[in-house]
Design a protein around this nucleic acid. Structure first.
Length: 465
RNA sequence: GGCGUCGUACUCAAGCGGUAAGAGAGCAGUCUGCAAAACUGUUAUGCACCAGUUCGAAUCUGGUCGACGCCUCCA
């Protein structure tokens, strides 16, 4: 069997994946804070995690994948104030949109999608445990994590807190014992949403929800925790501190999570896509123009730990490649395949995926097999290669459409299909009479209607441009 | 200031010690009335630059230049 290797942020090395329990793999990926449309950068960790989950399901008998919805956060409160809409209305709307957008990218729903507001009790319990263990303290109605009480602080992100302070731009709040201390619980005033707690009416600090939801739904330790690289510090560092602190563990971050995987950022014109730069592109901006599969393919065309330059051209290139693969599948449309074999991924591809999810190389292998399929002579060959292509497509989460549907064959956006078929008949009549001027005239007319035609041995087919 | 990543053809992008995958785009040819599609061939004596290690380096080491990320909300 192929051994899965993953780059573990905790050790900064590619390691053999050794599960806590090989009969049940447990994985958590940070989901969105729902206060706005999901952007294409949000899609990367979701697609990477989805791919990893599919691979884990292929390799192991049982996988539980948890990805949360953060529906309480200062950004949401701010959005509510700005739009004068109730918080619940905002979070419900954008949670729904997020899930629709991910679905359009072929991301399978997580097994469990917990909401932060359903886990307030668990968060309060964690804070109480941290206070009991002496790694959190109450100050001016806040509860803070005492970073000096936790030896392994900085281990995940590979930084020394002392060194950070020199160039740090963080303004130190009066209630902090150490500038590195971070908020676990904060007071809610006026109209702020909040819950009763031993420390008064308030709400959780940012990092707490993931510690609570991951432990509650998966138990500790669990195997894999994922997210974007920009979350390594402070979000994930603090998650580790909280979860270990609540369990009285000072040194070993692995009592929480065994493998941390982080995807690199999407760049626009060489710069990270970010709110402050205003170069955000929402998934909705693209799904009007391109099938979600194109976006997924474009995201997989680079390695997940490498920053990916996101341009219209890279999307177009992904589209062209998929078009070609679908054309080959169209060619072998009538070749019957054995559904059982569709579950067998060729070793060459499995190797790539097991090597820290090397999707660009896996896609290269896919292309090689597609080329062979295109040239295959015998039915046996065609059947075998088609099965391989479908198997690879299934694990990569692509090629979900029928070729006709994808290529737009025999489908028009309007209700003018009869007219198109009539014109094609007229053109073939003209061709038969060798009246090529007229034939070309009709083709030009079809082109102007947005219809491409192709003369094949089986007759003329047409498709939307 | 601290920590880290990257620089491979026109474009995207693997390879990470054994002589440059794959895709897109382009060009030429075959085929077809012409197109389209398909097929065949073709596009890096070289992997930012300079030294070094080695029988051998895009791959290792040191240096130079350039781009970017985290340390602040961020996927």
């Amino acid at each position: 069997m192929n051994i899965l290797k993953l780059h573990n942020t905790l050790t900064r090395q590619k390691e053999d994946f050794v599960p806590v329990d090989k009969n049940h793999i447990k994985m958590y990926t940070c989901g969105p804070t729902v206060y706005n449309y999901a952007h294409i950068g949000n899609a990367r960790p979701a697609v990477v995690s989805d791919l990893l989950v599919r691979l884990l399901r292929y390799l192991y008998p049982k996988v539980t994948y948890v990805s949360n919805i953060t529906d309480i956060d200062d950004k949401i409160i701010q959005a509510s104030k700005e739009t004068k809409k109730p918080i619940a209305e905002i979070t419900e709307k954008f949670e729904k949109i997020y899930n629709e957008d991910m679905s359009s990218l072929g991301v399978l729903p997580p097994d469990i999608q917990p909401r932060a507001t359903d886990h307030i009790d668990d968060m309060i319990k964690l804070v109480e445990d941290m206070i009991d263990n002496g790694c959190a303290y109450e100050s001016e109605h806040h509860v803070l994590f005492d970073v000096n009480s936790y030896n392994a602080y900085g281990k995940l992100s590979g930084r020394d807190i002392e060194d950070q302070l020199a160039g740090s731009r963080v303004e130190v709040a009066s209630y902090k014992k150490d500038p590195g201390d971070f908020v676990l619980w904060k007071p809610s005033v006026d109209d702020d949403p909040g819950w009763d707690s031993p420390w008064g009416f308030g709400r959780p600090g940012w990092h707490l929800e993931c510690s609570a939801m991951s432990e509650k739904n998966l138990g500790l330790p669990f195997d894999i925790h994922g997210g974007g690289m920009d979350l390594i510090f402070p979000h994930h560092e603090n998650e580790v501190a909280q979860s270990c602190g609540a369990h009285g563990e000072q040194n070993d971050p692995k009592i929480f999570v065994r493998y941390w995987i982080h995807n690199a950022m999407l760049n626009i014109g060489g710069k990270k896509m970010s709110k402050s730069l205003g170069n955000i592109f929402y998934i909705r901006d693209y799904t009007d123009k391109y099938p979600g599969e194109v976006l997924r393919f474009a995201l997989m065309s680079g390695h997940y730990r490498q920053s990916l330059n996101w341009t219209d051209k890279s999307i177009e290139q992904a589209h062209s490649t998929l078009n070609r693969i679908y054309r080959v599948l169209k060619k072998v449309e009538d070749v019957k395949i054995d559904e059982n074999n569709v579950n067998l991924i060729p070793d060459s591809v499995l190797e790539c995926l097991c090597d820290d999810l090397n999707t660009p190389e896996a896609l290269a292998k896919l292309n090689e097999i597609v080329n062979k399929l295109s040239k295959a002579k015998t039915d046996g060959e065609k059947k075998q290669l088609k099965e391989q292509v479908i198997a690879i497509a299934n694990i990569l989460g692509i090629l979900n459409e029928s070729p006709d549907n994808w290529l737009g064959i025999g489908k028009s956006s309007g209700s003018n299909e009869d007219e198109i078929n009539q014109l094609i008949d007229d053109r073939n009549e003209a061709r038969k009479l060798k009246d090529f001027n007229k034939a070309d005239e009709i083709r030009d007319k079809l082109t102007n209607m947005g219809i491409d035609i192709e003369d094949t041995p089986d007759g003329t087919i047409w498709r939307k441009k």
